[in-house]
């Protein structure tokens, strides 16, 4: 479990980090909590030659009430998201979902920005922020830009971030008392979800996203459309996998995964409708 040789630089600000990453190009990677990148490096599946450590960029760790949304700094640790009173009040679905990430050690090291930038379809937080209609703020050499969560995930571990861009903030709309549910189905408590569902409902509106049901986190638009047209929870849930292209793995066949998505979406909507 020894990674290939790499160089290491620590950035003290976002600007410095971006300037370093621009300097070293494609072979460089940002290192935040390290809980996605380091395991890949240890298995030598990832072999970046330069790591730009942004772990001590302090001004990127925050959770702020910004009126209609909550602004979360990209380096905020999962544990801080989970325990945040602001999020518990205004975006309880996200705080709750953060409590399902890995185990306590992972939640104390891993960051919400790292998880989203890694763009893992099996991540709990990519799908949750997608369901919530979050906006991600990226910063590059030419300043900041906003990317809607639904436009962010481009493929397996691929995001809309340019190589010299860094995710700096996650803006999550307040839930305004919407009913919600997070369903994570796995075999062991600390595993990635075999299938997960993040869902909320508020009057006619809803958001449903699926964990690990394709190469990216999946917005189950067909479910929300059906609900908007007045479909029952059970009928809407039957459309759970319409927008998904699930893969088979050791834990689930495509057929089983599809079935699970329907069951879990139904259960999520039942809970969100209470």
């Amino acid at each position: 479990m020894i990674p290939a040789t790499f160089e290491y630089k620590r950035a003290s600000s976002a600007d410095e980090a971006i300037s370093l990453i621009s300097q070293y190009g494609d072979e460089a990677k940002f290192l935040a909590g390290g809980h996605s990148l380091i395991p890949l490096m240890k298995l030598r599946l990832a072999q970046p030659t330069m790591l730009v450590d942004i772990g001590r960029v302090k001004d990127l760790s925050y959770i702020k009430d910004a009126g209609d949304h909550i602004a979360i700094g990209a380096l905020t640790r999962h544990m801080d998201v989970e325990k945040s009173p602001v999020l518990s009040k205004h975006v309880p679905l996200l705080a709750h979902a953060a409590g399902y990430v890995g185990d306590a050690q992972v939640r104390h090291r891993g960051t919400i920005g790292g998880s989203i930038a890694h763009a893992d379809p099996a991540s709990d937080l990519t799908a949750t922020t997608l369901a919530l209609g979050a906006t991600y703020v990226a910063q590059g050499p030419n300043g900041k830009r906003e990317i809607a969560a639904k436009d962010f995930y481009k493929g397996f571990l691929e995001s809309a971030l340019a190589a010299d861009e860094m995710l700096v903030e996650i803006k999550v709309p307040k839930m305004n008392g919407a009913g919600w549910s997070f369903q994570k189905f796995n075999r062991r408590a600390v595993d990635w979800a075999i299938v997960g569902v993040a869902a909320w409902r508020n009057n006619g509106a809803s958001g449903v996203a699926l964990v690990n049901m394709g190469s990216t986190p999946v917005l189950a638009g067909a479910v929300s459309s059906a609900l908007a047209k007045g479909a029952s929870v059970a009928d809407a849930a039957a459309h759970a996998a319409d927008d998904a292209e699930p893969q088979a793995d050791l834990n689930a066949s495509v057929e089983y995964r599809t079935h699970l998505a329907k069951v879990l979406v139904r259960r999520a909507l039942e809970q969100a409708s209470k």
Binding site: P39, R187, R188, A189, V190, D191, W192, L250
Partner: peptide
Amino acid sequence: KTSNLAEYLVPAACD
């Protein structure tokens, strides 16, 4: 296919 502890499922105390 189960050559690491993410794929080879050893239950933990909470399981």
